[in-house]
Design a protein around this nucleic acid. Structure first.
Lengths: 252, 252
DNA sequence: CGCCTCATTGAGTTCTGTCAATCCCAGTGG
DNA sequence: CCACTGGGATTGACAGAACTCAATGAGGCG
């Protein structure tokens, strides 16, 4: 019940999701896929709530998310939390830490996760020996940045209802890419507080917005499950334009 | 009067600001600086308000900002504008466009600017022949992303007053790096509407917050000039922690 | 059964936005 | 030199969105 319905990205190959996403944007040959796979040092399963990286700590490896949801988040001095990114299956979540050497934010497991660790030394080898693959990794961090910009727009200019709607539209679209959503819904075992921290709202207000979305027959979020009843309507409320997701191919 | 007071980054070298910033993080040898300088194709001066890149248009070159302020911004379908990034002297503003092939946002001149154009072919050569320099360019896009994350935190969780205060704290710190602020103030010829679009507020409310900052003896913004009267107090109101700017060196 | 976390709801408050008038000032033309 | 104009800045009054506080409900778990 609580386990996500595996579609076809969830094979035994830990980099299946990543490969699906990179392929979507640019060619990725078998050799390059092998190099990526061989760069993985260890694989781990972690429970929800676990902090994987704390701001400021020195880093020597990056995190590839195989299954579950990871978040990057920051806090103000008084404790107000803001989630800046949500990562899904196949995201090279922590690639930012590679060149920054330390992160200015935390990385945590939003749900139970399976992650692979890639040593930074391997990443440097890739940039030296496989320039094209190196550019693809760079590209994936640039697409993270595009998601962040949309989040800035969302929090800065969308209404609370629009923000919540947009949050789910984006998640749905991103999960579709990696075969974790069929477009009509997906498992998402988090609390309303988590959604509040991602949208810059309070949990109470998120609750009200969810009620409204439900009442308008657009979307239900309950028991860790998102059901999209009216995708077109939801995207209209969200003012959702997926072009920032770069879903089309970007020829080499 | 309206011309910014050049400190020492404003030499004739178009990449002076960029070099200052990259040096701060990692070694950059003379050869690498030459490669960067030689990658510039043309240099242009543009008036305030000019749009340099429109969302979606195919790109073949990236923009290095030599002087003035550039913005990246997005709009909702009803026209609400949100500035997602502000670029200062020495920022390789449009490096994101290199691998994305097209941008999902616009790039505009917030003030009069002088910009250099670098063809994407040159950037590819750098990644192929100069892996270390390539990583530095990658690093600069990662630092852009760190700024974006702080903006998400700011808009999502800071009060209106805190947002405005934080906006100026960040700008001041970034301008100091490239010698465009002495820490006590700097020229910033923009309107309150621009600040509103950057902070996710309305111009009327920005005006009120500016009045408050002025009333508390923290900062004055008037006639395109920022004067910081009480930096410590301002940073306190802003809950400003500069660690996200990565001002310290990141050893190779 | 009791406890705990999370979801839900209502009432009231506060913050920020909206609307509209006025002010200020630089630039322009007479 | 002065009236006029236009773009911002400023202000007040009011509206509305989102937050706060607090109570209640619902479900899972030991």
């Amino acid at each position: 019940m609580a386990s996500p319905a595996p579609v076809d990205a969830d094979t035994d190959d830990p980099i299946a999701g990543l490969v699906m996403k990179l392929r979507l944007r640019d060619g990725l040959d078998a050799h390059e896929a092998d190099v990526l796979r061989d760069s993985i040092e260890t694989i781990e399963t972690l429970p929800a709530g676990r902090t994987l990286v704390t701001a400021g700590e020195p880093l020597r490896q990056s995190i590839l998310l195989i299954e579950g949801f990871l978040i990057r988040f920051k806090d103000l001095s008084q404790g107000q939390r803001q989630i800046t990114d949500i990562h899904v299956n196949g995201d090279f979540a922590d690639l930012h830490g590679y060149l920054l050497k330390r992160l200015e934010h935390h990385v945590g497991a939003l749900t139970a996760v399976r992650v692979a660790y890639v040593p930074h030394t391997k990443l440097t080898q890739i940039t030296e020996r496989e320039p094209h693959l190196g550019r693809l990794l760079w590209l994936s961090t640039l697409m993270d940045a595009a998601l962040q910009r949309e989040r800035i727009l969302s929090i800065g200019r969308r209404s609370a209802l629009g923000r919540v709607a947009h949050f789910f539209c984006e998640l749905n679209a991103r999960l579709e890419i990696v075969g974790q959503s069929d477009g009509a819904g997906f498992p998402f075992p988090v609390t309303q507080l988590d959604i509040a921290d991602a949208t810059g709202l309070t949990p109470v207000h998120v609750n009200r917005m969810l009620r409204k979305l439900r009442g308008e027959g657009l979307l239900t979020f309950r028991n860790g499950l998102v059901e999209i009843h009216d995708r077109t309507g939801l995207e209209k409320v969200a003012d959702f334009d997926p072009s920032y997701l770069f879903l089309e191919s970007l020829p080499r």
